[in-house]
Structures are given as structure tokens and as C-alpha cells.
Nucleic acid binder design. Structure first.
Lengths: 355, 355
DNA sequence: GTCGTTTCTGGAAACGTTTCTATTTTATGC
DNA sequence: GCATAAAATAGAAACGTTTCCAGAAACGAC
């Protein structure tokens, strides 16, 4: 008798467990599935009567289009990849937070991946994101000159926004901080206070961040007309281990520095550990300026001078630039200012000098 | 002769631009597409000869299965939702970082969403994740007793791991910190030092975190046999604004507290701002214990006593518990210890008391 | 009333997989 | 060498959408 069952592989017994598809809505509204799709995606060629009928059926059933079916067919995934070295770094945390907020407003979701500062992991992550057909990528890359990097990013076939990085020849947007301005101001202030032996610790010169900071460091000395202490410049990694060991090394030199600039949050943390172990107090035994702050720095790091940049703005700008590219805009480079903020730790260090 | 071309609408002209599909591999290997799928997904019923042939063709073409097609068909998305109040909070940052690392190792990607501490945003996020058919969810919820919360989570149809939350009746795993132990130890230490008027600021009692901390706070007074200062307990929100305003209120009371415990990173930041504005110095004008640390606290917060819990471990355990459930394991509750760490700020506050 | 336009709608073909079923091949036991 | 079972393969039907195409209805103009 129920021969129709033969043609209906869709099980009807289950009630709430089987998800509602576009077919169910079509059946309920008594129209074709293509019409459902048209109404729900706001296609112009739809009569008012149809629109109401479909909307009603969809609402009554609580229909939610399947994300994967949509993506498979349309190609758009509404997903943005976000690759960062380490999300536990609170500076990146703020960027991620603000960025995600903006993307979410625009209907996009964020796929978060840590590269752990490792080139191989980074490249695996990018490959993974390609397979996931992301609509765009925001990334703070480990390095700029990795052989396959450019082509790997191009193969993504999606717009890219780089955070504080310059990959030559890559047609991407970038949010670049104007590091040299803040660092120059800070360095020049220290020189004005009488320092000559100023140490500078930061990451590798293979990334824009370090190069631009170094530029500011050097130009301050130039401006002051005194030689720049190349033996006190230590560039390698952004992490705390490097910061600590280099601080220890530099501050046990025979002709030890009287001031220190540390580049980045990790670096600063390491530097402070190192100083503590050497029993040197910032603001007293040496002048100290941290490059980059993190949320609540005003509270936790009250005494520390800094070169500040606005992480929240970086996150927002990155999202904005990416969304713009997704909707057809062309890549652009956005500069973000940095500011030297003077606090107690800018003082100190000079009494130790023999006059 | 090449009649087969008739059946091949697939354009052959394009070279690198058209992505390689399973059909291309099948054609190259001269086998059916189902065989490709079987080989690549490690199906047992495959001959060695076939395996080699397919692998070779796939490698040569650089074939990468389309993620969405796989998910659509198989139902598994290899994607984990991660909902957190605020990723810029470094405590959450560490959890997210470690968690993502573990998930990535197991082949899963993390979809990050901030709820901004807002119930409506949180529920929108969960809905979004449902549409994306995530394989699992790790969440630090805003509150536990939102009317539709339980059913919303159940509708996800995926295993859930809650961070420091208890949703009654929900069949989920949970990573719960043993807050009361650390808080009791800290409070008792303060009492032992002579404090009676100890203030306690934390979030709402609608979440486990606060309830368990309060339990420890109360039990310390009970243990000491002195009455518990209910007028100094302020429970509301975890954010800095609340922490600051409540600190100001409590420390301008007529019979003002001599010690303060602040619950959570945001709260601690607010408390410290408040104290600064009142010109009260922790460790001198009052005894102070921060609940929760963040990365590099040993450096930046050297002087602050704390109730510590291991964020990295929480992240790892959350990932492990979720993966376990995904592969069929049953939900479980994991307890994470907290430790009272005594530093300079535990002293102070008592000289101000009239004897 | 007929003929073009336009507007709307239904049907069906994608999208790129996995998985079910049926069929062919190979192995096994006598 | 034959029947039977087991292993391996091919073919086709999903999965749930969007989008192309063709045809139907509606609308004027003649």
C-alpha cells in the first residue's frame, strides 16, 4: 500500500533529530527549492507573494541553511584565517579580539591558528587554511623571506592582510606601525638625559618591525651627532628567552650600557627577568624603555616608560582592510603611529657612570 | 575516436587556476573516484597495487581534497568552536593558545569567538557555530542560568567542554578549578596575620568560579572562628570597571577593610586602579592578594601575592577532554588545583588599624 | 487577439566529496 | 575445475545548497 515510501528515502519518523533542509521548506511552502534559495538570499526577481509565503514557511520550521552546502556551492566560506605567533601574548590578544569583533559584525568567523613562532608550523597552517577555502587571511608572520612564502600565500587565492610585515612582490594589504618615530623619540630622550651607551634588544632584522625600530634607534644617534653603539644592539628573536640572555650578556659587559630599550612584550619580559637576576633596578641602576605595552599596562607597569602603539586600532584596521579587499577593493598599506610615553623608568643609570 | 570528450564537460584548457579534484586524480590513475576516496581515507578494502597507483597520481597532481565537500558528505567538520568572554584577557589567551595547539595536533581547527561578556552575543555565537556544524565546543560562558542555554547547547549536537562552569542537567565535560582551596589558604593567611576586615571582590554568583571562591573565603573565617565580613563582599562582574568602583567604595567606608582579595584578572586590574586613585599602596596600606595570574606575572607583578591556577594545563585538559568525547568517550569533570603564592603584598594594612 | 517584453517560477545541473550497492576479480577448499 | 566465499573495484546515489536555463504568467502595444 504505502508505495510512496519507496520513493521517499527521507525518513519521516524522526521529528526533531533530522535537521530541516531547504526541501522541507519548499514542501511546506508548496514551491520549488530554487525559489526558497532566491528569497532567502535576497535575489531581486521574487514576487512579494512568494517572499511572504517562503519566509513564513522558513520561520515556522526554524530553517537554517546548511553552511557547508552553501559554501560548497557558492565558494564563499565567510571564514577568515588568523595566524599569529602566540595568542597568549596579550598584545596579539587585543588585536585578535578587536579584529574578531569587526569580522563578526560583517558576518565572518575567525579561524585562529598559532604558529608558535615556527616557520614550518606557519606553513602547515597556511596549507590547512587553503584547504578550508578561507575568504581572507590576517597574519603576523614569523619571517618575511621564507623561500616559498610568497607563492604559498598567493596559492591561497584570497586577500591577505599582513600585520607589521612586508613581503616583497606580494599583492597584499599591510598594517605597519610607524616604529621608528617612537623609538627615535625614546632614544633621543635618553641621549638628551646624558646616555651614550644605550642597549637595544629586538627580533630579527628579517621582519619589518625590527628594521623600522632599528632605523629609529640609529637616527636618534645621528640627530644627536654621536656615534651609535653597534656593540649594544642585539637582534635575534622576540621571545623572552632571548631577551633575558641578551640582557644578562649586555649588562655584564665591561663597559656596560646605562640604558635599555627592549623590543616587544616577550623581549621586555625577558629583559626584566634578566635585570632582576643582575639586581639592577630600572629607573635607578639603568634607564629603561619598553617597546609595546599590553592591556592594563597603566596598572601593572606603572613605572615603565614605553613606546606605545594601539593594538585595538591595529585589529580594527586589519579587519577593515580585509573586508574592503573581499568586496573588491585594492590592497593598501596603513600606517599606525607610535608614541613615546615617559614614565619613571626613563630616569636612572647615570650615577653609575664615572665622570 | 575520443568520444569520451563528450562526457567530459570539465574544461581542460585551464592549467593551474582550476583546482584539482578527485575526478582528475581518478582519470590520471585510470580508476574510479570511489577508489581514490578509499585509498586516501585509509579504507581497508584496497589492494596494494591500487594504493600505490592512486597515491602516485595524487602526489603528482598535488591533490588536496576539498574541505567543504568532505564535510558536507561525511558530516565531520574537524572544527572546534571556542567561545570566550575576551581573548585579550591574557589568562584566556594562554588557555586558547595551549588548547589550539592540542587540537591542531589532532587535526582540528579552532573557530574563535568572543562573547564580550554579553549573553546575547554568546547565544548568537552558539547559533552560528551550530550552523557551521562544529565537531565540538569549548566555552567559558557568561552565566550558567540563562533560560535557553541548556537547550541551545544541546541543539549543537556536539560534545561540549565548559571552562569553570556548571550547567545543571547538561551532559558535558567541565574543567573546574579548585578555587576554594587557594582562596581559603590566602584568606586564612591574612586572618592569621591579624586581619579581620578583609574585602572580597569577584564576579556574579551565577557562575561556579565565584561560588567556589566565596566558599573558600567563608570557610577560612569559619576555620578561624571569627565572623565573616559580609559587608565587604562584593560580587557582580569580572571586569575592571566593577573592580575599580567597588574598590573605591569599599576602601572609603567608615570602617574600611585592611585587606583585599580580587577575583580574576580584570577585577585585579580594576582594584589596582582604584587603590592607586585612593593613594593606597598594596603591601603597605593594605594587604592584597590577586586571584589569577597571567603570563609573566613573575616579572610584571613581582610584589603581588596570588591565588594561582595553571592556565596552560586548563587549555590542554579542555582539548583532551573534548577529543575524548569526540571519539566516543563520556563526559567527565576535571579538577584543577589552585595555590596560594605569598609575595610582598600579603603584608601591610595593619598599622593603619587602631589597636 | 496576437505578438513581443518583462517578471517570475520550476526543474535540473552543478559543487566535490563519501558511502552504499552491485559487480567483477581473486582466493579457497574440495 | 567448480562452487563458494572473500576481496577489490566501479558506478551511482546521496549530502544541501546555488545558479543556470527554459518556460509560464503578466503586461503593454499594436
Amino acid at each position: 500500500m504505502p508505495k510512496s515510501a519507496e520513493n521517499a528515502p527521507r525518513k519521516k519518523g524522526k521529528k526533531s533529530s533530522a535537521p530541516i533542509t531547504i526541501h522541507d521548506v519548499a514542501e511546506r511552502a508548496g514551491v520549488a527549492i530554487s525559489s526558497i534559495s532566491r528569497v532567502l538570499s535576497g535575489h531581486p526577481d521574487v514576487s512579494e507573494r512568494m517572499r511572504i509565503k517562503v519566509q513564513k514557511a522558513a520561520d515556522e520550521l526554524g530553517y537554517e541553511p546548511d553552511f557547508f552546502a552553501q559554501s560548497l556551492r557558492s565558494g564563499a566560506t565567510k571564514t577568515i584565517g588568523f595566524i599569529i605567533r602566540d595568542i597568549s601574548n596579550p598584545f596579539f590578544g587585543v588585536i585578535a579580539q578587536c579584529c574578531e569583533q569587526e569580522l563578526r559584525k560583517a558576518g565572518y568567523s575567525m579561524l585562529l591558528m598559532n604558529s608558535d613562532g615556527d616557520v614550518a608550523t606557519e606553513s602547515t597552517n597556511i596549507a590547512q587554511l587553503r584547504r578550508r577555502k578561507i575568504d581572507g587571511l590576517i597574519a603576523s608572520l614569523v619571517s618575511e623571506d621564507i623561500p616559498e612564502l610568497k607563492s604559498t600565500l598567493e596559492k591561497l587565492n584570497a586577500p591577505v592582510v599582513l600585520l607589521d610585515r612586508e613581503v616583497v612582490g606580494l599583492n597584499s594589504s599591510a598594517i605597519l606601525a610607524n616604529h621608528h618615530q617612537g623609538v627615535e623619540d625614546a632614544t633621543y630622550d635618553l641621549i638628551t638625559r646624558g646616555h651614550k651607551r644605550i642597549a637595544f634588544i629586538s627580533g630579527s632584522t628579517r621582519v619589518y618591525t625590527t628594521r623600522d625600530r632599528l632605523k629609529g634607534f640609529k637616527s636618534a644617534f645621528k640627530k644627536a651627532g654621536i656615534p651609535y653603539p653597534s656593540d649594544l644592539v642585539s637582534l635575534g628573536k622576540f621571545d623572552a628567552e632571548f631577551g633575558e640572555s641578551e640582557t644578562k650578556r649586555l649588562f655584564t659587559l665591561k663597559d656596560r650600557p646605562t640604558a635599555l630599550l627592549s623590543g616587544g612584550i616577550g623581549s621586555t619580559a625577558g629583559a626584566m627577568r634578566g635585570l632582576k637576576k643582575l639586581d639592577l633596578v630600572p629607573g635607578k641602576d639603568l634607564a629603561f624603555v619598553a617597546i609595546d605595552e599590553w592591556p592594563m599596562f597603566d596598572v601593572y607597569g606603572q613605572q615603565f616608560s614605553s613606546v606605545y602603539r594601539d593594538a585595538a586600532m591595529i585589529g580594527r584596521e586589519a579587519a577593515a582592510a580585509l573586508l574592503e579587499m573581499i568586496s573588491g577593493g585594492s590592497p593598501r598599506t596603513i600606517k599606525v603611529e607610535t608614541t613615546y610615553i615617559v614614565r619613571e623608568s626613563s630616569a636612572g643609570g647615570l650615577k653609575a657612570k664615572k665622570k
